[in-house]
Design a protein around this nucleic acid. Structure first.
Ligand code: SF4
Ligand code: SF4
Lengths: 144, 144
DNA sequence: CTTAATTCAGATAAATTTGTCTGAATTAAA
DNA sequence: TTTAATTCAGACAAATTTATCTGAATTAAG
C-alpha cells in the first residue's frame, strides 16, 4: 500500500499533467483543492519532486507547476519509487529483508508473480495516458 | 504493503503454528527471537489476536501460545485483515476512498485484477500449509 | 518601482505507529 | 505453599509520518 505522501504525489502529478497543455500551469492551492490534500503538504511534496526533475515549477506571481512532454513520459511507478522506494514492488510478502529464492516459503512464487504484475501496471501507466483523458472522461482525483 | 505490526503478526502466527504439534507451545521470548521482533511488542500483538480467537494462550509458568487445528485453518489474509484491515485488498491504486466503477481511471481494471490476485494468494495460504513444512524445509522467519 | 501572489527552505507541531515499562494475575513445579 | 516464569492490562515513550508555520526569494502586472 502506498504512503499517504505517495498517494498525494501520484494524484497531484496526474492532475498537473492533465492541466499542463500549451503553457498552462496550476498552483498549489488549486492542486490541493482538486486532489483533496493539505495545501502546504502537497506543496512540500511537489517541491521535492520538482527538485528531482519530475515536474517543472515557475516561481513568483502567476507561477505554479507544470509537466512538459518529457516529464509526462514518466510512469506512476517512477513516481511511487521516487517517493516510497521500491519495497512495494520488490519486497517480501511477510516482511523479510530479502527474498530467499533458495528456501522459498509457500507463497513466494505466486506472491512474486502478483507483485511483478502490480509493478507492470504502475510502470506502463504513464502520465501521458492520463493527460489524454479530457473533459467528461477526466478522472475524479478527490477522495469522496 | 503490510504494516510492521502486521508483518510481525503473520510471521509469529506461522512460527507458532509450526510449533504447536501435540501439546507443544511457545512463549513470547522464543517467538520474538525466532521472527526477529521486539519481545514486548509481539507480546502485545499476540495478546490481541488471542483475545480475538486467532490463537490460544496459556498463562502462568511454562505457559505460552499455541494454535490448534481449528485456528490453523485461518489464512494469512484473515490475519492481515484482522491487523491492518482490508484496505490493502480492497483499496484504490492511487488512494481514493472508493473505487468508482462508473468512471474508472486507466489503471483501474488491471489494478483490481492484480489486487484480487494478491488477495487470493494470501487467502489460500493457510497456517496449516506452513505447519506441514518441517525440519529442513522450515521457512526462515527472521529478517536477514 | 511597488505590490501581490506565488514557490521555496527550514523549523516546528500534531498524529500515528512502533516499541517499552510496570506491576498484577496466573500457573506449574519443587 | 512458596517460587519462578509466564501472560495480561494499561500507561508511557520513542520514532516516524503527516501536516503546519514563518519568512525569504522570486516574478508578473499595474
Ligand atoms: S520465500 Fe516467502 S517469506 Fe521468504 S522472502 Fe520470499 S515471499 Fe518472503
Ligand atoms: S478508477 Fe483508478 S483511481 Fe478510481 S478508484 Fe479505481 S483504481 Fe482508484
Amino acid at each position: 500500500m502506498l504512503s499517504k505522501t505517495c498517494e498525494y504525489a501520484v494524484r497531484a502529478m496526474i492532475y498537473v499533467a492533465q492541466n499542463s497543455q500549451n503553457g498552462q500551469m496550476v498552483n498549489i492551492k488549486k492542486i490541493a483543492e482538486k486532489i483533496g490534500s493539505p495545501e502546504l503538504f502537497i506543496g512540500k511534496i511537489l517541491q521535492g519532486l520538482s527538485k528531482r526533475g519530475f515536474l517543472q515549477s515557475s516561481k513568483g506571481r502567476y507561477g505554479g507547476f507544470y509537466i512538459n512532454d518529457n516529464d509526462a513520459k514518466h510512469s506512476l511507478a517512477d513516481i511511487v519509487i521516487a517517493v516510497d522506494g521500491d519495497k512495494i514492488f520488490k519486497g517480501c510478502g511477510v516482511g523479510l529483508d530479502y527474498c530467499s529464492e533458495k528456501k522459498p516459503c509457500p507463497i513466494h512464487s505466486e506472491y512474486k508473480t502478483a507483485r511483478n504484475q502490480l509493478f507492470n501496471i504502475y510502470k506502463s501507466a504513464t502520465l501521458e495516458q492520463f493527460k489524454s483523458l479530457k473533459g467528461s472522461e477526466l478522472v475524479m482525483l478527490k477522495r469522496k
